[in-house]
Design a protein around this nucleic acid. Structure first.
Lengths: 192, 192
DNA sequence: ATCGTTGGTCAACGATTGTTGGCAAACGGG
DNA sequence: CCCGTTTGCCAACAATCGTTGACCAACGAT
């Protein structure tokens, strides 16, 4: 019988599974999808490449499991209307720097079709609802959210992927001070 | 003697060289560096893979030759101070859509170290001088130029690489209307 | 007509990749 | 203690990659 008393409890392999996911996120973030090989990920995790296949089926399956992203976007309801730009930029910076998953996803999204579609999904399911709270005209929510995405992803691209020196040198507070008015305008300002 | 009378004139192979470059740009733009193989590029160009090696030495050499980018940024001198944002965004959109080189470079820059360094070079040698014309304080030129790059590259990323539907649906005029004030502020506004 | 130069094909190399199946050891409930 | 299950390693497969060298055909000046 497959399920005895500890059905949902820690099996011995959960440690390995987690190690694989951790190594996979690091490699995908550093090298992108194609150059991150199952062999190097397995070596980082200290196990055999075949284990990766057993636990995640294929390289695509591993990637899908490694970049399950939850942006944990805040509820904009209780916030003053003119602070949502600053709140969003601050939150995005924190999310991006505490966690290499987002960099991995961005790198892969730029090269891989599946990665790009996953980013489209995150945009639609996580950023759109938040934009709906901030944007008065429901008709314009997708456009406003997309404009916000251009600025936030553009900063992530230049700072964490391309690593343009002046973008890397900026402090978090400086970035918020510069980008918050932009995001604020994209979400709440009347049509230009 | 290698050079007879037609030293700088059209050799027969120049057609092939150009065909290879054209196919390479298409493939690098569509697939990124790793998935664009020399074999498929050669097939697109209608010749043998070994010719690519003969003419460009290696895959890296081919890439270097394929993405020699000149942004042809306009001289901002004769322009009214408050129109440089609009002028830059308009020019960037035109450059990006007339030519797949930029998309290729962005895709590769997101995955490949050499590609990222090439983008840093373009930023430094082509965008910085223009920002120097628009920005009053010389000390702040790199920061202002980097901020501009985040917005312009962010739009390119979401529209031409990730292809977020709302970003694709925008017309050029709408993009200029939304982004021009942002770029204008990044380049000319006082510190926030 | 001849012969070096150029433009091009073909077949193969060594390396690396994702992926698979077989087998050994450790575990754990009966 | 015993036996099925889990966890893991090893070796190998087939495919694909960048790259190379041998070989052939067409050209062009002498």
């Amino acid at each position: 019988m497959p399920d005895s008393k500890h059905t949902a409890l820690s099996r011995r392999s959960d440690t390995t599974r987690a190690a694989i996911l951790h190594a996979a996120r690091e490699r995908f973030a550093a090298d992108g999808y194609e150059r991150a090989t199952i062999r190097t990920i397995a070596r980082d995790a200290g196990i055999d490449p075949s284990m990766v296949m057993r636990y995640y089926g294929s390289k695509e399956g591993l990637f899908a499991a490694a970049v399950a992203v939850d942006l944990k976007l805040p509820d904009l309801g209780p916030l003053p209307r003119d602070e949502i730009g600053s709140a969003l930029v601050t939150h995005f910076l924190a999310m991006w720097e505490e966690n290499e998953v987002l960099t991995a996803l961005l790198r892969v999204g730029a090269t891989n079709q599946a990665g790009a579609e996953r980013m489209q999904g995150i945009f639609q399911e996580q950023l759109l609802p938040v934009a709906r709270q901030a944007c008065p005209d429901p008709e314009q929510v997708p456009v406003r959210a997309a404009l916000t995405a251009t600025q936030l992803l553009g900063m992530a691209l230049t700072r964490y992927v391309l690593r343009l020196p002046p973008a890397v040198a900026l402090s978090r507070q400086e970035i918020v001070a510069w980008l918050a008015p932009t995001v604020q305008r994209y979400l709440t300002a009347p049509n230009p």
